[in-house]
């Protein structure tokens, strides 16, 4: 710790995080000088990448396509998708991981895109609602949402569709209790849950 207190040492200054802020974080032991790409510091015994504070290069793989972007490290995956790639199916509603309207798949696992930083999503396969259709044919989950009128204003719908697909992939024949638990991470204001329950039942019957 002591040797790093030397203010002339470049590693911390160039990490973009002030020394004072560093000292507030418990357990940081050493700052490693920069190499190409993000700087790495060791925090609580683990190496941690440090980005920014300005724009940094970010590469995202979305729906099978690679995109090179310049983003501030604080930009969320959701905002990167919506404001930088014009992929707007995932919606911004609560912007803090509470409502599920921004649900996307990251390496096939449902995540809240507003609670993932774009820099954290690098090297992962991001799948959004836009890619579920095959050509002009709706995915069985999407078709079931249409058939059972599981959307009204539709703002929560893309998140629900993605969450439902991820849920059914893991629970192809869910019990009502599993449905209640498995989809409790998404909220709807118009009250389309009844249609969503019917839609899930339809897909489970037919098999997705």
């Amino acid at each position: 710790m002591r040797e790093d207190d030397d203010p002339k040492k470049p590693s911390q200054e160039s990490s973009g995080v002030s020394r004072r802020e560093f000292l507030k974080i418990g357990g940081i032991t050493v700052a490693v000088p920069l190499v190409a790409g993000p700087r790495v510091v060791e925090a609580a015994g683990e190496p941690v990448k440090v980005y920014g504070p300005g724009k940094v290069p970010v590469e995202l793989t979305v729906n099978g396509k690679k995109h090179a972007l310049q983003l501030e490290p604080r930009v969320t995956l959701l905002d990167a998708l919506r404001d930088h790639l014009d992929i707007t199916g995932a919606k911004r509603v609560c912007d803090r991981g509470e409502c599920g309207a921004c649900t996307v798949l990251m390496d096939n696992k449902a995540v809240y895109a507003c609670a993932v930083l774009a820099i954290e999503a690098q090297g992962k396969q991001i799948t959004t609602v836009e890619s579920l259709m095959e050509g002009e044919t709706l995915h069985p989950v999407q078709q079931a949402f249409v058939d059972n009128d599981a959307s009204q204003c539709g703002f929560c719908t893309p998140g629900f569709v993605v969450a439902t697909k991820a849920f059914l992939d893991r629970h192809p024949n869910p019990t009502p209790d599993e449905i209640r638990r498995g989809l409790s991470g998404n909220f709807c204001r118009c009250g389309t849950y009844h249609g969503i329950q019917q839609a899930i039942a339809q897909v489970a019957r037919k098999g997705a």
Binding site: T88, K91, V129, M133
Partner: peptide
Amino acid sequence: SRVDAPLKVSGRAKYTYD
């Protein structure tokens, strides 16, 4: 079935926020 549903379930419906 509502005619706008296919757009909404596929993320293609554009809202003001989009």
